[in-house]
Design a protein around this nucleic acid. Structure first.
Length: 519
RNA sequence: CGGGAAGUAGCGCAGCCCGGUAGCGCGCUUCGUUCGGGACGAAGAGGUCGCGGGUUCAAGUCCCGCCUUCCCGACCA
């Protein structure tokens, strides 16, 4: 390492002000992280822990989201919340507990969620006979059990019944930020936990057309967020009946591709038709003075987006965050020996920090003397901070500053003049580069298959999305899933008709659908 | 919920087969030298060995039950 360091210094002397390509890779990382190639899922697990995003809790399947991880989620939440408000929605809050009987009312819905519901049966504890323990008081059994919400359609539609009488009460455009519980057998931090955070929008409309327009609008909001904030390219489409939300007439979704070639559903938007209105008897009087059932939508994204964000961009050195969602966008590290030196450098560094802050950039000036510069470099690297600035005595003399970008691991020496503008542009560049990189990756991993052999080969050996013909039956989809683990991720929204034959049964098909193995 | 593996200091692990004084590395504390890619030396602190029973003079070690995590299935966002 010392030799490398020496070489680096030599290089810098000879080509100061010129870009130094390819930062020294650190051997240390290998000790702490699995690599993606070695073991992708271990890499993901390590990353979540080492980047200080979340950890497992004392409760099975439930995670603790740590401050750094929560800061990212908070940013996502704030941006999405703004987008919801801009499209006319308001936030509200409904109860965590739902009377069990509510679940009986919509047949498909109950069937979809029954197997993973947590149930509250008692409301009191007491001391055990021997006084050593706390036990459930059997005398305090609830008359009707309460379900911990796995989603809130039922309690919300029961409530909407009282809110809606006339077409003048419509539309209702409500969103809630909440936690939900689905009793999962096998969990992974962010990707699948028993409790997770999400938002669920629930809207009520006078007409079918308006409800469908709302469903599509919110899908577009999600796609916009994924692409422009998360730098995550997504495909839009509808789900096959097998994959449809329990109780929906049509489920729209955005699907993204992770670096291991598996698809991840990043958001869903459901057209619920009049299913819940009928189940909960929610009617309104239209302008012709006739009773009609209300039309409904619901839409949601969850902390699972954190998983998508991590798996889409990060590398073997740790987390890589798109600048627009990074809690810290720029870290400034001073290089110093003495206190006097630190004071001089700090003067310059703080000035630069202020310049950056004036542009709305989130900056952290790390003048701790308890950690060495190299240690800080590593830390910011595996925490995914997009840009790191280093400033030392040499830079003070030369009016320069070292700029390192996380996405490409390149370092350059910049002149200090106009540094704020340069960094601002660099952040934009990184944001775009991450999107482009993810987009090219997806392009390279998107295939067409016309025969069963071809299909199997792609799914098993290449991964990624496969456009293929399907005869439209749930039975065929199930068989394909049983044999290859690939499912229909979506039926593309663009209405590209193409005559063909189902890859599995050979029956006629009018269009290709997108298959993949999925999270 | 089925099959496998693991749980010993904050983290990573050895010790268990063959019962008898709880160990190593990293991290942590103090001091000194260092500081442009995870510094070095010296001296320290830190443990109900996952939890609960049992066997035994004696259990981290043997036996039984449970909990948690990871991997593979079924289920699922």
């Amino acid at each position: 390492m010392n030799i490398l360091l020496f070489l680096c210094l030599l290089l810098r002397k000879h080509i100061s002000n010129v870009k130094i390509a390819n930062i020294i890779p650190y051997g240390n990382m290998a000790k702490e992280f699995s690599t993606r190639a070695e073991n992708y899922s271990q890499w993901y697990n390590d990353l979540v822990i080492k980047a200080d995003l979340a950890e497992n809790s004392a409760v099975r399947g439930c995670m603790v989201i740590k401050p750094y991880g929560f800061a990212i989620w908070e940013k996502m939440r704030d941006v999405l919340d703004g987008m919801f408000k801009d499209t006319g929605h308001s936030n509200a809050y409904f109860p965590l507990f739902i009377p069990k009987s509510f679940f009986n009312k919509e047949a498909a819905h109950v069937e979809g969620f029954a197997k993973e519901c947590a149930v509250v049966t008692h409301y009191r504890l007491k001391n055990s006979e021997d006084g050593k323990d706390i036990v459930v008081d059997e005398n305090a059994r609830l008359e009707e059990e309460l379900i911990v919400r796995p989603t809130s359609e039922t309690i919300i539609w029961d409530t909407y019944r009282n809110w809606i009488q006339s077409y003048r009460d419509l539309p209702i455009l409500v969103n809630q930020w909440a936690n939900v519980v689905r009793w999962e057998m096998r969990t992974r931090l962010f990707l699948r936990t028993a409790e997770f955070l999400w938002q669920e929008g629930h809207t009520a409309h006078a007409t079918k057309e308006e409800a469908i327009a709302e469903t599509k609008q919110m899908l577009d909001v999600y796609a916009d967020f994924a692409e422009n904030w998360m730098a995550l390219p997504v495909m839009k489409g509808t789900k096959s009946p097998n994959e449809r939300f329990a109780g929906a007439v049509e489920t729209y979704c955005i699907e993204s591709l992770m670096q291991d070639g598996k698809a991840l559903q990043a958001g869903t938007s459901h057209f619920l038709g009049q299913n819940f209105a009928k189940a909960f008897d929610v009617k309104f009087l239209n302008q012709q003075n006739q009773q009609e059932y209300v039309w409904a939508t619901s839409w949601g994204v969850s902390t699972r987006l954190m998983g998508a964000l991590i798996m889409a961009h990060s590398d073997d050195n740790g987390l890589v965050l798109p600048p627009k969602l990074a809690p810290t966008q720029v870290a400034i590290v001073p290089i110093f020996k003495s206190k006097e030196q630190l004071e001089k450098i700090s003067e310059k560094a703080v000035a630069i920090k202020k310049e950056l802050q004036a542009k709305g950039i989130k900056v952290k000036y790390d003048d701790r003397d308890t950690y060495k510069p190299g240690w800080k470099f590593s830390e910011y690297e595996f925490k995914g901070v997009p840009v790191r600035l280093a400033i030392g005595p040499r830079d003070l003399e030369n009016g320069t500053i070292e700029v390192a970008r996380r996405d490409t691991l390149e370092k350059e020496i910049y002149q200090q003049s106009d540094i704020a503008n340069k960094v601002e542009h660099l952040l934009d560049k990184i944001q775009n580069n991450l999107y482009q990189r993810a987009f090219s990756f997806r392009e390279d991993k998107t295939f067409k298959a016309d025969t069963w052999e071809e299909f199997r080969d792609i799914v098993e050996n290449k991964g990624g999305f496969v456009y293929a013909h399907w005869d439209g039956t749930p039975e065929t989809e199930q068989k394909i899933k049983d044999e290859t683990k690939a499912t229909i991720r979506l039926i593309p929204l663009d209405d590209k008709r193409e005559e063909g034959k189902c890859i599995y049964t050979g029956k006629p098909s009018e269009r290709r659908v997108v298959f993949a193995r999925a999270y």
